[in-house]
Write a protein that binds this DNA or RNA. Structure first.
Lengths: 196, 196
DNA sequence: GTATAATGTAAGTGTATGCTTACATAAATA
DNA sequence: TATTTATGTAAGCATACACTTACATTATAC
């Protein structure tokens, strides 16, 4: 007799908007009032979908990472496996940070005192790292043995490269052109290792 | 007839404590109440030394960076110039983040909507980069021409390396041992470029 | 000693914000 | 149509926090 429960559909509708707000404003500045306003609803509507603001943020983090990974997977599938790492560097050098992943991660990094946020952040970074490492390993397999540090370390260094590139974009550290070269050239150096 | 003005001395006394609080707690969690409590004074005492909380934060950022650079300079002076870059990587791999530099920078990254904080952040990162670039160039001079990307890009990649290493420390991404190897080995790879 | 300004103490103020409550309305089934 | 529950609206609450005000106390120069 009652109306059907559309809670989960509603969550899926609003999550992209909420995530966008967190990415753009950071955790603190994205107040529940602004989140609701951007969604075109009242605050209590959000509170019917998630228990509290933190849950909204954690859901946003997962959503943004999943979306980014999905895009990378699509790009990866567009060519032969061994060249994936190089093609992705190329792609990122042009579309860096479009999906708000780093912005959300940065926002989370200011809330590391909260064990739950901290934990989710750790999980996300680990997934990120694992994904990159797999590409580096595939690259190595094609190229033969690696001379420099193993794929694990290289993958972390690539994460660092992406991070500094995004920090740079965030605070206008360097022009877009240099940012693209940074990812492409330094990334290639890391990938190719000590080989000539 | 009045008492002598000890304002600037007092600032120098309290700034390290304030900076430590910002580094440890981040911008938002470091409330003016806790800042004052840690300094062993009342809030209005701090407000007599700085116009507002933001000024306290910016002063802290400058203080922490200056201190970190001073330490690096000391370490750099301890050996021949050409080996500085390598020795500093070695040093950082062991003492990473001890001075709270990255923590303050992360805290600032969540406040990038404020143009003043943003500007100071940019300045600090640029000083950081310039300092590293000089070491990379000195290293290159000793070693002969560079085969890979130029020193400018390499220096940014090294900043990224330090960043990811500090993120890792912040949220327990990997054990200290791997962190040290990350800095030492990936750093070395970046420094040596495509050379064998 | 006394005038003067710096320093310390204590309490308060206005506002922002996470979250809740009370109530009206809408839609679906029986 | 009647009943039941989801959905929307509006207002409010409690707290935290940046910042201020009022006043007592101290140390210095004369």
């Amino acid at each position: 007799m009652p109306r059907p429960d559309r809670t989960s559909e509603r969550r899926e509708e609003l999550l992209p908007i909420v995530a966008e707000a967190f990415a753009r404003l950071g955790y603190r500045r994205a107040t529940t009032a602004t989140l609701a306003a951007r969604c075109g609803v009242r605050e209590n509507v959000l509170y019917r979908l998630w228990p509290d603001k933190k849950a909204m943020f954690l859901a946003s983090m997962r959503y943004v990472y999943d979306r980014a990974e999905r895009i990378w997977e699509e790009r990866a599938a567009e060519g032969p496996e061994g060249t994936t790492a190089r093609r992705l560097l190329e792609y990122e050098s042009r579309h860096l940070g479009e999906f708000g992943l780093y912005r959300i991660l940065f926002a989370g990094l200011s809330e590391t005192d909260d064990p739950e946020i901290r934990g989710h952040l750790r999980d996300t970074y680990r997934r990120f790292h694992r994904w990159i490492r797999r590409r580096v390993e595939a690259h190595d397999r094609l190229r033969g043995a690696r001379l420099g540090p193993e794929a694990d370390l290289i993958a972390w260094a690539v994460v660092g490269l992406g991070t500094v590139a995004n920090v740079g974009r965030e605070i206008d550290l360097f022009p877009a052109r240099l940012r693209a070269r940074l990812i492409a050239e330094a990334g290639r150096l890391l990938l190719e290792g000590g080989a000539p």
